[in-house]
Amino acid sequence: MTRWRQVRGGRWSPLAAMLLLSPMALLLIAGFFYPLVNLLGRSLWTPEFSLVHYERLLGEPLYLLILMRTLWIAGVVSVFTLLLGYPVALVMARLGGWKAALVAACVLVPLWTSALVRSYAWVVLLQRNGIVNDTLRGLGLTEQPLRLIHTEGALLVAMTHVLLPFMVLPIYSVLRAISTDLPRAAANLGAGTWSIFRHVTLPLSLPGVFAGTLMVFILSLGFYITPALVGGPRTLMIATLIGQQMTELLNWSFASAIAAALLAVTLLLVAAFRRVLRIDQMAGHAG
């Protein structure tokens, strides 16, 4: 940004900048920030000020169970994606040429495919007569087809699958930036492959690990599509609870309170870890 600032005529007046920014700012204020403030208001004034919806969210065992399940699933999905994503990022960073392009394509194609379609694939794979059940029966592991869809296990598998690219990419970009001189120096000093990884590569890649883990955790907390299709009403998470309160029970004030709570938690996490997260690298999009 500085290069334009250094040269004469490079900077435009504050008035010109304001004029250029204002259409976007007006749209965001009217269409995004106002609705969020309105949502907060609806959760607090019914019509007098009251915290009743928040008390209900934290007081009733059913909702507390859903909050705990959401944290648990987000945590497990973060761990699963880390365990599966790190080796992929490691191999991707070491490759060159067409092999690197092939691995990159394997990571990017799912990222570019709508989460809706990927969740749908899991619905079909895990259905009563789906390939997973057929395989289990073929192997003699089960007599009757198992009910897989709408279980927590199914949701964990599907969410890990949908969110894995968000773990691979930040780790990959950090690993890629590590100078190859460092592992080579360690090798020259007599370190073995495992020792180099343990003492050089792994510590240097930790910023990417933190960024990826946080991103997957935050995305999991508010994820709607996969929990709605694969988790279903039996395995509600916060987002699907909001959806159920909105569309089925028409309890808009309570839905607003849950949404406001989810928003607060998300913003707190993003604000606390904004240096680690590097939001501007979130080039992909999830649901």
Partner: peptide, 19 residues
Amino acid sequence: TLAPMIVPHIVVAVAMYLT
């Protein structure tokens, strides 16, 4: 500017629907 990217889509959806 980046806020719409950070807020979970379910929250955006409910807020926009109500307004």
